[in-house]
């Protein structure tokens, strides 16, 4: 039985606010994600050398590296949302105070805002460092928004799964990457379209469909994952 909409929205908002309040106390996720992403970005640019990638290959290779940096950064910081609940033994209190679907949506909204902040920070720096011109900035923004949402939805569910297991850190990457691979491929395809100034193809529709499917699966499976 679903609770009244106002109660449900209040619960989801409370979870979202609580996540940000905890985050602003320690700034763990934000600083870890930003530092990890920036370090990876520097490693990538230094490894490519001062010449970078040949202009003819840049539009094919550089979108891949951007999404790999974002994916690994998310894997480094986002699982903590659920792991922290288990480690600090607040999971039971959370189970009592919010319905699973509201909790999932609250955590998803938190993950989404963290990823949006990360993308806003990293993407302009990456484009500037790699001297990668984007002919359709609007399409790039849509790709970042849609793929960022998919990353948040997939990561939230997988983070809830690994929070109850041993060796949580490595397990997240092992479990999440095969789930997020279609999203990564679609995001790269749309980013290439944005860089080349081509119109969005069927990849954007498929990415939105992926987001919808993962969200539905998350809402459907989360009660089973969360409640013992």
């Amino acid at each position: 039985m679903w609770p009244a909409a106002s109660t449900w929205a209040a619960e989801a908002t409370a979870v979202f606010v609580k996540e940000w309040r905890c985050e602003l106390r320690t700034r763990y996720a934000l600083s870890t994600l930003a530092l990890f992403a920036f370090t990876t970005l520097v490693v990538v640019s230094v490894s490519l050398g001062p010449l970078g990638v040949a202009r003819s290959q840049g539009s094919a290779v550089l979108p891949v590296l951007l999404w790999v940096i974002l994916l690994f950064s998310v894997a480094a910081g986002l699982p903590r949302t659920f792991v922290q609940e288990e480690e600090s033994q607040t999971a039971t209190a959370l189970r009592l105070s919010a319905t699973p679907s509201a909790l999932f949506c609250g955590k998803l909204a938190y993950g989404l805002t963290v990823i949006a902040a990360l993308e806003a920070l990293i993407t302009p720096v990456y484009l500037a460092m790699m001297s990668l011109p984007v002919r359709s900035p609007g399409l790039l923004a849509v790709a970042l928004a849609a793929a960022g949402y998919g990353l948040a939805a997939g990561s939230t569910l997988v983070a809830a799964i690994i929070a109850q297991a041993r060796s949580k850190g490595t397990l997240f990457a092992v479990l999440a990457f095969p789930v997020l691979l279609p999203l990564l491929l679609l995001a790269v395809e749309i980013t290439r379209d944005a860089v080349g100034g081509d119109p969005a193809g069927v990849a954007l529709t498929q990415l939105i469909l992926y987001d919808a499917c993962v969200t539905t699966a998350g809402l459907m499976l989360f009660p089973a994952v969360w409640n013992p």
């Binding site: 479990l175 095969p178 789930v179 992926y210 539905t216 699966a217 499976l221």
Partner: peptide, 10 residues
């Protein structure tokens, strides 16, 4: 089981 069902969706 939840992870396997997620695989079925993706």
């Amino acid at each position: 089981a939840a992870y396997a069902v997620l695989g079925l969706v993706v």
